[in-house]
Design a protein around this nucleic acid. Structure first.
Lengths: 257, 257
DNA sequence: TAGTGGTCTAGACCACTAA
DNA sequence: TAGTGGTCTAGACCACTAC
């Protein structure tokens, strides 16, 4: 085993000449490569990624440059740093992460027992607007999922969810029944799809008949409607979700920074 | 003029001994001092702060340490870095910042002419819940402001606002009429109060009579109610705002990260 | 050309974790 | 004790802005 230099396995653009065609800093290039590794599932949620020194050696840069790349991924909540232990791939099996995506909170602040009842899980062709939001054709297959979330056994959220069929092969009512909350945890461990970011649009509206029935309220009751598009690595949309929230004893919390 | 060393004017805790009582990194201490300067109004919104090298000399640390402090303040949107020009105190007279606090957007994405009509501006004693949220006594004075925001002359938001009297001396309907949008711009330039962060609670509810009248809809129309507490430097609450949004043609946009 | 923030390096040392 | 991330330094050079 000699110490002969190995062939440069990573194509880093070290050329930092002024006015270079498409210059991007080294740490951005490294960030992009780490993102690819995450996307490929090279390191799974909950697992540690290689140490900073190891990555620095692999990419032939200094530790500080790797640090800056990891810093940004940690700021985006894709990675989690733990001093003395390592850097880990974020997972949805953590209260912290869950609350980032479940913004409805009880007015009195008390903990609530959460339960989910799946009403439907079928393979269908998507409505035109959903197909567009998922970057699919209307001829592609999608899963349509409908469920009711209850807090302390009080039905509070009705959700209508669409998922690309190609990514969620094998999704079924049984699988959903076995698996408990959170849904995004199931997605990451069973299908290797990590939800990283989402955009939501909120409106107040009078409950349609169907939604009202699922939530045990009268038709016309004011509901908070939440339309979500969720994205995985690389800003690829992988879920459309329409939710109707009862806000008699709950509120949607948000921070403006 | 001699080059004699000046007395150390800043109390930095350089003692980094293990298990030191209350150890905090140098860059955090510097961040805290920069925050104090911002709070004192040493540098006003829109103005540049001293250069990194100058601050490094002032605090007797390396440029890198100052950079890290500034990095965090810039990430929190308190400062704005502009390469080649300097680092500036964030101001609410910028579209970017405005959209951080006004989350209602038209469904069709088209630009809308925004106008504000002030209905009331009075000095009163605060309701108990408002006093509590502002860390005031119910015997303290507050300003109560009511206004309607219209987009393309369509009334869309009714707001009820409370501000600590001590901080907003001289606030009046006239001042508000002269001054155009945004309100937080007025607060920062006329009263030296910079809104830095806010927490909101959203609910859907049936329009009460008064709100319905202001928004030209029927009593009972579903409205999005938004309760906001806004904070200035050092997490001090300085505004309570209750808004009712018409979401027929608008939605509240939010990003989950 | 001078001054600003932005990137990158190499190395020292600290704080935390686990064996 | 060894290995990890966290802090701090000093210095070089690049990119951008303004004069």
């Amino acid at each position: 085993m000699s110490d002969q230099p190995i062939a440069e396995p990573y194509a880093l653009d070290t050329g930092r000449a002024a006015h270079s065609a498409a210059y991007s800093p080294l740490y951005q290039q490294i960030k992009a490569m780490l993102l690819q590794s995450l996307d490929r599932g090279e390191w799974k949620p909950g697992e540690p990624i290689p140490s900073e020194l190891e990555l620095a050696a692999r990419f032939q840069v200094s530790q500080g440059t790797v640090r800056k790349a990891i810093d940004e991924l940690a700021a985006d909540n894709l990675l989690l740093r733990r001093q003395g232990k390592g850097t880990f791939v974020a997972t949805h099996y953590e209260a912290k992460v869950r609350f980032r995506f479940l913004r409805l909170a009880p007015d009195d602040g008390r903990q609530q027992a959460t339960s989910s009842r799946v009403l439907e899980c079928s393979r269908i062709k998507p409505p035109a607007d959903v197909a567009k939001q998922l970057d699919l054709r209307t001829s592609d297959q999608v899963f349509n999922l409908r469920r009711v979330l209850s807090f302390n056994d009080v039905p509070t959220i009705f959700e209508d969810i669409w998922l690309p069929g190609a990514l969620f092969k094998g999704l079924s009512t049984e699988l959903l029944a076995e698996h408990k909350i959170p849904l995004y945890g199931l997605f990451e461990s069973e299908f290797g799809v990590s939800m990283v970011r989402a955009e939501e649009k909120l409106r107040a509206l009078a409950a349609p008949t169907e939604q009202a029935q699922h939530l045990s309220v009268q038709t016309g009751t004011p509901l908070l409607q939440v339309e979500r598009v969720a994205y995985t690595y690389g800003d690829r949309p992988v879920e459309v979700r329409r939710g109707w929230y009862l806000t008699q004893h709950f509120h949607y919390r948000n921070s403006l920074n």
